[in-house]
């Protein structure tokens, strides 16, 4: 299941895959993923995929397993919790023209990068 706040990802994948669109921020996506991981969904892709810093891109897409899986996912829980901590750290140096406040042109590029990273992972 793809958890995303990127409309380009929803458009590209909703016919093919289970997509949960999050009406909200990069952080809201991470929190949604955390909630799913805590009830047993496996973390499939790394939440900080790509080298774009969390205070630059407003978009985030993360893949988790469609269904909860039995067992204790300590590693996944640590990774998603650390990722939220990283996001909050970067948020302290918020940029007036980045994240949610990025220009429409920059947002288009950020949507494209987020989608293409996900695509190159899923198609590999």
């Amino acid at each position: 299941m793809i958890i995303t706040n990127n409309p380009a990802v929803t458009a590209a994948y909703e016919q093919m895959k289970n997509v949960r669109y999050v009406e909200g921020s990069y952080r809201d996506v991470l929190v949604e993923v955390r909630n799913l991981v805590h009830i047993g969904h496996e973390l499939v892709t790394h939440p900080l995929m790509g080298s774009l810093k969390p205070n630059e891109t407003p978009y985030r897409s993360v893949v988790v397993s469609d269904e909860p899986v039995q067992g204790c996912h300590t590693e996944a829980i640590l990774i998603i919790e650390e990722s939220i901590a990283v996001f909050d750290r970067f948020a302290r140096t918020a940029r007036p023209d980045r994240g949610a406040h990025a220009s429409e042109i920059a947002k288009r590029d950020f949507r494209e990068i987020d989608l293409s990273l996900l695509k190159s992972a899923l198609d590999a």
Partner: peptide
């Protein structure tokens, strides 16, 4: 080697390092 995907790739003897 950086191999996260599009625009984040490295190649070894022409092979994409993520593979």
């Amino acid at each position: 080697l950086q191999s996260q995907g599009l625009l984040h790739d490295t190649y070894v003897y022409g092979v994409d390092a993520k593979q």
